[in-house]
Write a protein that binds this DNA or RNA. Structure first.
Lengths: 228, 228
DNA sequence: TGACAACAGATTTTCGAAATTATTTATTTT
DNA sequence: AAAATAAATAATTTCGAAAATCTGTTGTCA
């Protein structure tokens, strides 16, 4: 369990290069809404916020544009993406497609180590969810919950046997998270329901019931049925 | 039908910036095996091959690394990816996953314009395949066949309703193509079989038979069953 | 008023040289 | 000879200023 001091902020990965560092800062800031949707990201401007040079920022922004976290147009620079209901649904659809496929493979192929890691990730997640239900200030928990949720879903698909599939899932999941942050703030934490869903997923996975597992994931992800 | 002169080379998209230009050249070169697998791509070196500055090349390489066409490690630069049997299977698996889903949606949602475009793309493709069967020098056709095949599969999924899904498919398809180029050179053009498979796909699609269509696609893509 | 050109300010792109870091080669030590 | 160290070479990263391009404003003309 994290100490209180650690709960305040998640440490970013250590990076040797300044461009790599700028990339981490920007990526984190983008996911957590540091800049308004559609806002222009000008290297010259950002170098006061993030203390580095505009060249390093440009390089980081190019990488983020490739991953779809920012948009880029030749001669007119970078902007944050504009989350729309439609882009949210597209991301969710792709997330479900990838996760169901990967989870099915994982359930079929996973060994004891996979079970153990999944169990551990699940335990850590529901422990935090328990804490959250008995707290009135959720904001400080959201980042950690988000991280643990991500690690849980990664543990679930870890044994799918395809590095590419895992990598694609992670990329989509992170962009989905960027969109869902808004929703999390609007609708709040769903508490016991979420915990029950996570339980269903793990139970089915450890029972090696791929159909039940994928069904549980789909229920879990598509809770807000806003016009699929 | 392309003129002979055009057949020799496919024109790259016009770009305003020199980094964008370098990106196009590099991407095309990577797909068509201009550099050996695992070969280091050093900006300083490349600027003699591709006449531009090392900075522009670095920027282009960063973008290509983000898309997975080259690998990148901090402090030790860029290299071309090493196609392995395993990475080929992973790409193919993901390609099938995305294309089946997108094609099903397209078949369900496509309108008359979709039908028309698909029909056109198909016509152009089988016309070239006909020519190829009665030719003894296939090498000059491969690039064009590859392009038309890509356009055909894009036309097929065009009506899926998700820009993100189409974009992801394209990215995976291009990397799949990079791998398949080797295979195409090894096994050669499969001729009549391929044409029949393309026919099956279009027929099912225009019949609005999603199940038959996805089955036909899967047969088409997973022809070389090397240990899935 | 509206269309258009010229201008000014801001932003993006280009470029290459200096600083940093990795890699290879040569030398010394065990 | 093998391992460790040092020097030389090569590659990567950083940096900022100049060039090119875009954007918004002002002024002119029909």
């Amino acid at each position: 369990m994290p100490k209180t001091a650690e709960l305040a902020d998640i440490p970013l990965g250590a990076h040797v290069t300044s461009a790599g560092h700028a990339y981490e800062i920007l990526r984190d800031g983008l996911i957590w809404g540091r800049w308004k949707p559609g806002e222009k990201l000008k290297p010259q401007h950002l170098k006061t916020e993030i203390s580095t040079t505009s060249s390093a920022l440009r390089e980081a922004l190019i990488r983020l544009a490739g991953e779809g976290f920012v948009t880029f147009e030749e001669q007119r620079g970078f902007s944050t993406i504009r989350p729309t209901p439609s882009s949210f649904l597209e991301l969710r659809h792709l997330r479900v497609l990838l996760e169901l496929d990967a989870a099915r493979l994982s359930v079929e192929r996973g060994n004891l180590e996979w079970e153990t890691n999944l169990s551990a990730a699940h335990h850590r997640l529901i422990f935090l969810e328990d804490k959250m239900r008995s707290s009135d200030d959720l904001r400080s928990y959201i980042k950690w919950w988000s991280r643990y949720d991500g690690q849980f879903h990664e543990a679930l698909i870890a044994a799918c046997g395809s590095e590419l599939l895992k990598q694609q899932f992670r990329s989509i999941y992170d962009k989905y998270r960027l969109h869902a942050v808004t929703e999390l703030r609007t609708f709040g934490f769903r508490g016991e329901t979420t915990t029950r869903e996570h339980n269903d997923i793990v139970t089915a996975a450890l029972d090696r019931d791929a159909d039940a597992c994928t069904a549980a994931i789909e229920r879990h992800v598509t809770v807000y049925r806003d016009g699929d």
